[in-house]
Amino acid sequence: MRNLKVVITGTYPEAAKKRIRDSFPKDWEIRIVLPEEAADELSAADVLIPEHIQVDAVLLKKAPKLKLVQTGAGHDNVRIEDCTEYGVQVCNASNVNAGAVAEHVMAFMLCWYKNMIYLDGFMKSHGNEAELDYSGAELSNKTIGIVGLGSVGKTVAGYCRAFGMRVVGYSRRDFRVDGVELWPLDDLYRESDIVSIHVPLNESTRHMVNGSAFQKMKRDAVLINTSRGAVIEEDSLVNAIRNGEIGGACLDVYEDEPLRQNSPLRNLQRVILTPHTAGFPDGVKYHKKRYDFFVSNIEKMMRSEEPECRLNKI
C-alpha cells in the first residue's frame, strides 16, 4: 500500500487538515484540496473523499487510477451508476456518525427550550434580572416527529424516549422502531412540537419540507435539520418563520454551503445555526471515528476484501 494517494476535497482549517493527515498511515500521500483544485490531483489518485464536489463521468475521466470513492453518511454528490461504469467502488459511512449527529439534535432541542443562547448572552451583557423575560419548556411530554428512521433517526428516537418524549415517525420504508409510532407525514407535521429531518437527499426528497408543510405545522413548532439543506425549501422556511407560521428552526445544513454571508437566516431571531458540524464532534471538521473507518475501508479495498457500506458492486 505504499505510495497510495488519497485526495480529500473540501474547505478545512489548517488545524483540521493536520488532524486528518495524522489519521492516515504515514506512508500514504494525503492531499487535502479545495474542490476547484481537485482536477489537478486526480490523475494519480487511488481514493477520493469528496465534499462539495460532484463525482460523475466528467470527473472520473480525469481519475484513471481511482479505485474507491469514500463518502461520509451522505452520498448525494456521487453518481453511483457512473462510478460503476468506470469500475470505481463507492462506499459511505452510514452508521459511523449516527451518535454524534443525534447528540447534536438533542443539543439543539435543549438549547431551544432551555433558552441557553439567550440566557448566556443576557448574563454576559450584565442584564438586569428584574427585566428578564423569556419562555421555555421541558422536553418531557413533548411530541417529536422524526422524518426518516435510518441510523440517525433511530438513535434520536432512543434519546428522546429517555427524556420522556412522545416519539412519532415517518418513513417511506417499512421500518419498525421500538417506541416509535408510525404516522402519515401530514399527521406528523400537524401534531409534532418538534420536527426533526433525517432523510437522504435525492430527487424524491428535494424540497419535501416546503411551504405546504409549514402551513400544516403548529405555530410554535421547531424544525430541526441535520441531514441535507436542500431537503428544505429555504426561502419558504424563512417566510414561515417571519410570518409566524412556525416557531423557528435549528439548522446545521443549508441549500448552499458554506451558508452565504447575506443569507436571511443569519438575521432571524428564532433560529439557531451551526456550520454543518453535527457529524464532527471532535473538533472543527474532524471526527476520529469517521477517519478510523475510512482507513479501515481503504485497507480492505487494497487487500481486495469487500469494504463496508458499499453502495455498488464492482
Rank of each mutant, 00 (worst) to 15 (best):
T71Q: 04
I20G: 01
A98I: 09
A45F: 04
R21M: 13
D22H: 11
S135Q: 11
H104C: 07
C83Q: 04
V55Y: 08
V105P: 00
P35Q: 02
N95L: 04
G87F: 08
D40S: 14
L132A: 05
S94N: 11
M123A: 14
L59H: 05
M106Q: 04
T84F: 01
K17S: 02
A73D: 00
D27W: 10
V88C: 03
G121W: 02
R21Q: 13
N95V: 13
M123R: 11
E129W: 14
V33Y: 03
A130T: 13
E51N: 15
D133Y: 12
Q70H: 08
Y12V: 07
A98D: 08
V101G: 01
A98M: 08
S43Y: 11
A39Q: 13
K61A: 07
L42R: 03
M123T: 15
D27G: 08
T84R: 12
E85W: 06
K17G: 03
E51I: 10
G99V: 11
N95C: 10
D120M: 14
A98C: 07
I20D: 01
L119N: 02
D40R: 14
E36S: 12
R31K: 15
I20R: 04
M109I: 13
N97H: 13
R79I: 13
K17W: 12
I32A: 00
D27Y: 15
E37Y: 07
E103T: 02
K114G: 06
G87H: 03
I32V: 06
K18M: 01
Y134D: 03
C111H: 09
Q89E: 11
A38M: 00
G121C: 00
V96M: 02
M106V: 14
V105Q: 07
F122K: 08
A44W: 04
K67L: 03
H126Y: 10
E36I: 11
A57W: 05
C83T: 04
C83S: 09
M106C: 06
K62H: 05
S125N: 13
D22K: 09
E85I: 02
Y134F: 15
D22F: 02
S125R: 11
L60M: 00
A107L: 13
N95M: 09
V47D: 05
V101C: 00
A102E: 00
E103I: 08
A93L: 08
A98T: 08
C83N: 03
V55K: 10
S125V: 03
A73W: 14
F122V: 08
D133I: 05
V33R: 04
V90S: 02
E29D: 12
D82Y: 06
Y12S: 05
D133A: 15
N115E: 07
A93F: 01
L34K: 15
T11D: 10
E14W: 10
S125T: 09
A45L: 00
T71N: 09
G72H: 13
F108A: 09
D76G: 00
T84D: 03
G127P: 06
N97D: 10
A38V: 12
G127K: 04
K18E: 14
K26P: 02
D76H: 11
